[in-house]
Simulated scan of single mutants.
Amino acid sequence: MVNPLRSASGLLGFCSLAIAAVWPLQAHAIFGDDEARRAIIELRQKVDKNQADTAAANAEARENAAATRRSLLELSNQIEQLRAELARLRGQNEQLAREVSELQRQQKDVQAGVDERLRRVEPLRIEHDGQAFNAAPNEKRDFDAAMDLLRKSDFVPAATAYAVFLQRYPSSGYTPSVLYWQGNAQYASRAYKEAVESHRRLLRDFPDHVRTPEAMLAMANSQFELKDPKGARKTLEDLAKAYPNSEAAAAARDRLARLR
């Protein structure tokens, strides 16, 4: 028969052994959960920190990108301003170039005008019919114009042009030549009396001029045309006496020989 005490004692021992066996496992489970929680917490903290760092990095990147965009926009605006300023300066440069060109053209025109006025008033050195003298440009022009009329056989206009010349330039160095050619133009237009007066004036005022002997010979021709043979003879005799070595004097002597 089983002893009840021994049975109770055995049961108590069995329970003690069971508790002893289970206790480490429970203790181990309890301590393992804490470590897991700590690991999870640490992992969560790391994730949160990484997320915060990533958010901060993204925010900084966005700020940097915004700053870069602002810098690029400002740089683009500056470039546009520089382009506008360059275009304005180019326009000013082109305008200045046009103004300088216009000023240079005006200066040339002014200089040409001054030169032209100087040419009109500045005396010219003339050598004509063995004489040298100064003459104004318009004086030479008028003389040449009268001579052109004579060369064209426009005798009446030429005689008028010589008369105008003598009135306009009473002290001209051309005067002896003008008187000579005026007399010839008058003779050619059959104004014999006027021709005699022109040649006589040349003889009186310019006896030493190279044209004077020829003028005396022409004057004698006009006197013959005026039916004044006595006057013509005297003119020829005076010519042969005053200018014996001239070609006109030789012609006068021939004429006188035929008149005897």
Rank of each mutant, 00 (worst) to 15 (best):
K241S: 12
L86T: 06
G231M: 01
A163Y: 07
D33I: 00
D144Y: 10
P244I: 12
E99G: 02
L11W: 15
L203D: 05
A161W: 08
R117I: 00
Q81L: 13
K234I: 05
L203R: 06
R201I: 01
S171K: 13
E35Q: 11
D115V: 08
R200F: 04
N58E: 07
A57T: 15
L96K: 02
L96I: 01
G13H: 08
K108F: 05
P123G: 07
R255E: 12
D48N: 12
H209Y: 08
Q106M: 08
A20P: 05
L75V: 09
S189G: 06
A242S: 14
R190Y: 15
K193G: 13
E116T: 13
A145Q: 13
Y243W: 10
P229C: 14
L12N: 10
S172A: 12
D228P: 07
V114N: 11
R260P: 00
A135Y: 04
K140E: 05
T212K: 02
R211Y: 05
R98E: 10
P137H: 07
F224Q: 07
A195N: 02
H209P: 08
L96D: 01
G130S: 12
G173V: 02
K140W: 05
V22C: 11
L96H: 01
A251R: 05
M219P: 00
Q186N: 07
A257F: 11
S246A: 10
N138T: 11
F133H: 04
K140I: 03
Q45S: 02
P170S: 07
K46L: 01
R233E: 15
L43T: 12
V178H: 09
R120Q: 14
L75I: 11
K140T: 10
T175N: 07
N3G: 12
R200E: 04
K140R: 09
A55K: 09
Q167G: 13
N64M: 14
P229A: 15
A145I: 04
R125H: 10
K230M: 05
H128V: 07
L256C: 01
A132C: 01
G113I: 12
A250G: 09
R255W: 15
L17I: 04
G183D: 04
M216N: 02
L5H: 13
Y187V: 00
S7M: 15
F143C: 00
L166W: 02
H128D: 09
E116I: 03
R119V: 10
F155N: 12
E139F: 10
R120I: 11
R200D: 03
I41P: 00
G10K: 13
E99C: 02
D254E: 11
G32L: 04
L72R: 11
R120K: 13
G91S: 08
